[in-house]
Amino acid sequence: MVDEKDKPLSLVMFSGTDDKLTAAAVLAVGAAVMGRPVNLFLQYYALDAFRVGKVKADHAISPEATESQAPIIRGHKGQHWSELLKQAKDVGEVNIQACALSMDMFGIGREDLDPMVDGIEGVAAFMASVSDGQVVFI
């Protein structure tokens, strides 16, 4: 029997704002360092943020941030989400896949994606990698 703690963590990354990308990256790095396989499935606006040359661009923050919270989040000294994901890949088993449907929707090709993206897959393949672990949608 697989130890609960060793089950994969699978994140569906939907949101493309820097705050949510960062929150997802923090979860990914935490699971990776604790030895859990991590699957990231990039959809919609999150996928758009992984385009070559756009990773470090300003992706704004989500609308639920209030006027007073927004500058605090923007000014925080934490690492960029892309750096956190690189660290996660470096220390653990992290598989980043682009959603085939979103690729098609936005007219994005494999060559348009940052090299940290490992491949393109459909939702059934993602669900196969989820196995008996949890899915988190952000």
Binding site: V26, V29, G30, V33, H76, K77, G78, Q79, L84, Q87, V91
Partner: peptide, 13 residues
């Protein structure tokens, strides 16, 4: 010191 979570842990690793 001064690094945000999870920076110190990552440096230790």
């Amino acid at each position: 010191r001064g690094m945000a979570c999870p920076g110190p842990l990552m440096n230790l690793i």
